[in-house]
Design a protein around this nucleic acid. Sequence first.
DNA 1: ACCTGAACACCGTTCAAGT
DNA 2: ACCTGAACACCGTTCAAGT
Lengths: 222, 222
Amino acid sequence: MAGLNRNRQRVQLDADSIVDAALRIAGAGESDALTVRRLGAELGADPTAIYRHFRDKDDLIRGALDRLIERALAQVDPQASWDDRLKALATAILEVFSAHPSVGSQAVVHSTGGPAEARTIEMVLGALMEAGLDDEDAVRFYAVLSSYVISLASAKCSALLAADAQERWIGFFPSLRQSSAPAAVRVRDRLEALRDRDVYEDGIRVIIDAVESRLPQSRVSD
Amino acid sequence: MAGLNRNRQRVQLDADSIVDAALRIAGAGESDALTVRRLGAELGADPTAIYRHFRDKDDLIRGALDRLIERALAQVDPQASWDDRLKALATAILEVFSAHPSVGSQAVVHSTGGPAEARTIEMVLGALMEAGLDDEDAVRFYAVLSSYVISLASAKCSALLAADAQERWIGFFPSLRQSSAPAAVRVRDRLEALRDRDVYEDGIRVIIDAVESRLPQSRVSD
DNA sequence: ACCTGAACACCGTTCAAGT
DNA sequence: ACCTGAACACCGTTCAAGT
């Protein structure tokens, strides 16, 4: 329908402009699926042209993901304390991913292999070591923290894509019966008041607290 | 190819047998995608016959997911201590999902709305209350724990489906350079030794420890 | 060197027709 | 009442042909 491209002429493409177009489509308010054909239309080129720059669609998605990680990383103040850096990164990743759900939802499958990914690993490990963890604990908590962040952010994106009226990702309880689930029914109001983002940040806090309790000079703050 | 169904005769179907067939396909060693057409072949019926029993494919997946949750729940010893029950449930969900990746990978999107889901919520809340948490904390930790378990297990399933040689989900680091990621390069061996399942259980332990530290009679065990 | 366009082998789903 | 089968509107990807 839109842009039938009469008198089309040869378009010159490159990897960066294709990734740009992919993020534009993925970022659309009304979540249009990210499709090879839609990408062609956005670029004003034949859909199959992208196969001259990426091996396949997954390869393109990897490139787009690395750019999203880069944007999230740019939101973190490198002067902040180690725990603030980690919290800021976690929040930024959820935000940036959620704004591009059809890219973010793929984050579980692919290691991007890109430069932003490497910088992120370095940043997280650096923060944990600066906190005072030894190598073994730093790696362990890097793994727990990053798998948490990536899996939850990606899950949120999948939920956004599916969104058939059902806005909620966590906190949707269609069929709780007093007879079989009395405790759940008793706290039903609290369950339904759960908000995705608060739960996510609770989880981050739990992990950061666990890091703190592993430190030599462990101090309890409230 | 297989089972061309010469002299086909009308097949009588019901929702349970369709879910059975879906789990059989999803559980196949070589991960064949779960497809409406493949489901028809497995059932010996026309592919579109399932639409007389489920509104759409998502509706069927929800049914299959609820059955997987039921199986995981059955592996938990109700006599065990509250923390062992929660750990056993988390482990069982990862196992049961991983064995049926094309169903488990969809767990993020759907609340099943089925009976097993309600029983699971009740079980987790019950364990947390038995531990000594008040209603507010019980709901908070229910949310953190269940979103962790579901998101990570589902992410693992997606990784299994994608598995292009790349067995690993966590712990795959193609391009770390000394110049841009010195800390990561220094602990590279440890990073590459990370195993999905250990990381997952580390995360569960972190959450359970956080529950313990919220209890009135908090004791430290090592 | 790289974009084009037809074609292939798939998807999920609808609906009139059968029994 | 419910299964069948053709058909529709999509997918990602390949490959010979163009320029």
